[in-house]
Design a binder for these strands. Structure first.
Lengths: 333, 333
DNA sequence: TTGTACGCGTTATCAC
DNA sequence: GTGATAACGCGTACAA
């Protein structure tokens, strides 16, 4: 791999001259200039970023730590982060913490060793004291994405708001009984509850929670539910994967969607629209979130003394498709 | 960010001594040792990889270029590559070429600038002369994954073989008419054809190809197909996404799966098993492919003079689920 | 306009 | 055992 010094030797000039030519800062003798450029092209010279960063203390590297890169939601996020970073000449050094605090810690160490210019991460536990300590000691501009971390720049979707949106939507469509399907630890559940409280009094009486991932258990729970009630039921699934599972079980049980049961998922994965019935879902503004995060990071890198931190909740969008369209606005199309 | 020199100053020893302590190679006075370690811990010292790599010409970086990181197949691949690399202390610098030759070229330049120790890539066009030229000039150990590139270490699934497997399976299950749904440019199509030729003579008469992605067009094509034939039809979809789309259209048309139509997808995404009916699919040995690729790369990095190149086709597995299980072996479970 | 000298943070090779 | 010293590839102040 050729170096500036080597090019200097080959062209009979000094190394700094080569540097000047290649960086085009200062004026140089056109003749020398051409000679150097020709030589560089011939040997396909690329500057050694490691060396550049040693002297300039800029690595042009952005560390990215996500909890699970194989989750297509994060994969898409990473893609957009990469695109946005690339525009400004930054590259990504990527880690997947796999929801493991130990691994996450390791990632932070490695990120530090590489002296990345900035860090974008999805923390395993944004409230963990240890993590907060590590990040602040890291002394690298950091932006949290997908989660809300107090005192750290954060770009995330307000899950509670999205959940409330689903509640309103299901109620508006005319569903009278409700099922929440998934983890109740997420804010989307809390928001769903709040939203329901606004829509109908005594909603608790009409709310069932199913948390199991086991199809048989779920089927049993549904049977029990439909034994007790005759009303049209709206289901809010924790994510699209679960929504698809639920749709499958409903089909197997010969329950009609959306006539008897309406269902809304979360994440708006690309399969939503090709499913039958197509699946209503909450779409997160993936790309916006990514580009805002990168831009914020770039700003922070340029203004290390700015102590302000941005707390930036974004709004999700409910994409209404056939699966929850009881009133037929879409099915009639 | 603290440096060795700084620690040396603080502890009153020379910088090389600090280096010795931190790397634990040579013996050092236990007393000094403790003092240095304490100081390093206190300031959360991490060695500057940039500097290390300058002198050692080892970046501990593996470049990864995929065509589309948002594709969950590649995302999973990247995850496994990362895990495997991590075991040996390597980190990933990740790029997505977005099937764009220009971008790919750029990625290769950047990868070179970072002096990565090795490169794992999914080329946009593994037969392109320009790409081959770039990679060979790159002078960095390179492994191609997912594709077959002559003269370059390659780890990939034999798509033709997988296609043939599907043909055999559909025939065995008793389907008599066949539809290939998707791009006919892929080897999986060729293999499917070959496999069919083995199973039944005059298969051409019984094969329909649907390439459109438009649901309406597809539905029309299916209607035409079922107007002409009464036989049970086996469909091989280009990938799971298309398979899901096809299943939706079939459901809408009230065509029963697998009784009237059997369907097999490709990629075995996680949704396959929660769909109803659950979707048969070709599973690629994702993890194996990733770890073989990384191991091969590590070997190449250790043996730069070994000119041998490995051409390593892997075998896909057909996961038979309800959607193509006409004989009821699974449904009866 | 061009070359010399130096420093970035580390490892490695020497003497001491 | 430990401390100078050189070297990696580059950018930059300074001198010529």
């Amino acid at each position: 791999m050729i170096t500036m010094t080597e090019i200097a030797r080959l062209t009979g000039v000094s190394q700094p001259t080569v540097s000047r030519v290649l960086n085009g800062n200062t004026a140089v003798n056109p003749e020398i200039r051409e000679r150097v450029l020709a030589c560089a092209r011939e040997h396909d010279f690329q500057p050694n970023v490691m060396a550049q960063s040693l002297v300039g203390s800029k690595t042009r590297l952005i560390g990215v730590i996500v909890t699970d890169i194989s989750n297509s939601f994060f994969a898409e996020l990473v893609k957009h982060i990469g695109e946005e970073a690339r525009k400004d000449g930054y590259s990504l050094i990527l880690f997947s913490s796999d929801y493991d605090l130990e691994k996450e810690k390791e990632c932070l160490d490695v990120v530090k060793r590489y002296r990345v210019d900035g860090l974008i991460m999805v923390p395993v536990d944004e409230n963990g004291a240890e993590w907060r300590g590590m990040v602040s000691r890291l002394d690298i501009p950091t932006v949290v994405i997908t989660r809300h971390a107090t005192g750290i720049d954060s770009f995330y979707v307000a899950h509670d708001e999205a959940g409330a949106q689903v509640a309103r939507h299901l109620h508006e469509q005319g569903y009278e009984e409700y099922i929440f399907f998934g983890n109740t630890t997420d804010d989307k559940y809390l928001g769903f509850i709040d939203g329901m409280a606004n829509e109908c009094r005594e909603f608790r009486k009409h709310l069932t929670i199913i948390s199991s991932k086991d199809s048989q258990v779920i089927e049993a729970a549904l049977k029990e539910h439909f034994a007790k009630t005759t009303g049209k039921t709206g289901i809010f699934a924790y994510n699209d994967r679960r929504a698809v599972q639920m749709m499958g079980i409903l089909q197997k049980m010969k329950i009609r969607v959306p006539e008897q049961v309406g269902i809304v998922g979360f994440d708006n994965i690309y399969l939503c629209e090709v499913l039958y019935p197509s699946l209503s879902s909450i779409a997160q503004p993936n790309e916006t979130m990514a580009s805002l995060a990168v831009q914020r990071l770039l700003y922070r890198m340029d203004h290390p003394n700015d102590q302000k931190r941005e707390d930036h909740p974004l709004h999700a969008e409910l994409i209404c498709r056939q699966s929850s369209d009881l009133k037929g606005g879409i099915l009639s199309k």
